[in-house]
């Protein structure tokens, strides 16, 4: 297989895992899929580093591997264990079918939105950058449709993976400095959200974000 078709394969894995995360409700499984997504992302980075023989990209790939494939999914999985199971509630506001439909629509929107970009650079990877945007939109979808706090965190992670994927596919990754800072911010953000989730369990006994509607204008 050529390098570029491997990249295409990894991108497909990214998108598919995103779609599955959106339609699954089981946190542990979402964690695994998230890990798969991180691996795919790291794979893209490594493939590109190999192709362009760039040390910076190798480091970025390593960073992605550690943060997005190991640490963050690990956090989600450990959170999944701590959270009291609430079987009676559906974890999502929409059914699986609807979720798949929305994901499909998101992909089309993303494809349409990135057409102008492919005018600028017609290489196959740039064309694949629409997958990054699609993943971002799927992330937004997860963010909105999941009821549980951790579900929203997962959505946020998918969204961020999408942005990273967009960066790799379109422009050989963002500069190291930005990636470093971005990963650090992401890590902190997830840690804080995790800590807040823990507090939610203590204070409310649930992590259903629909319960969080005391503040507001009525």
């Amino acid at each position: 297989m050529t390098n570029s078709s491997l990249i295409d394969l990894a991108s497909a894995a990214l998108l598919l895992s995103g779609v599955f995360i959106a339609s699954y409700n089981d946190l542990a499984r979402q964690g695994s899929l998230l890990r798969l997504q991180g691996l795919a992302l790291a794979a893209i980075a490594f493939l590109m580093a190999f192709e362009h023989n760039s040390l910076e990209l190798w480091i970025v790939g390593l960073l992605v591997l550690v943060v997005r494939a190991i640490v963050l999914p690990g956090l989600v999985k450990s959170a999944a264990k701590r959270i009291p199971t609430e079987k009676d509630r559906s974890h999502s506001r929409v059914s699986n079918t609807t979720s798949l439909l929305i994901s499909g629509a998101s992909t089309i929107v993303a494809y349409l939105a990135t057409i102008p970009l492919s005018h600028l650079d017609s290489s196959s990877t740039t064309k694949a950058s629409s997958i990054g945007l699609a993943l971002v939109l799927i992330g937004v979808q997860i963010l909105i449709t999941k009821r549980m706090a951790v579900g929203q965190i997962v959505g946020f992670l998918v969204l961020d993976n999408g942005i990273a994927a967009f960066g790799f596919l379109a422009t050989l990754g963002v500069p190291l400095l930005l990636e470093l800072g971005g990963s650090l911010d992401l890590l902190f953000a997830i840690l804080i959200m995790g800590a807040l989730t823990d507090r939610m369990i203590v204070k409310f006994g649930t992590t259903d974000v629909d319960e969080l509607s005391e503040l507001g204008d009525r």
């Binding site: 929107v109 057409i115 937004v140 963010l143 909105i144 974000v209 629909d210 509607s213 009525r218």
Partner: peptide, 28 residues
């Protein structure tokens, strides 16, 4: 307007998402 700001985070996120999609459409 208050009805739209009743405290549901989902609604707030949806507003953001709508803005996002509008930008994607407008920017084309």
């Amino acid at each position: 307007v208050q009805k739209g700001h009743s405290g549901k985070i989902r609604n707030y996120l949806i507003y953001g998402a709508i803005g996002f999609i509008i930008v994607l459409v407008v920017a084309r």
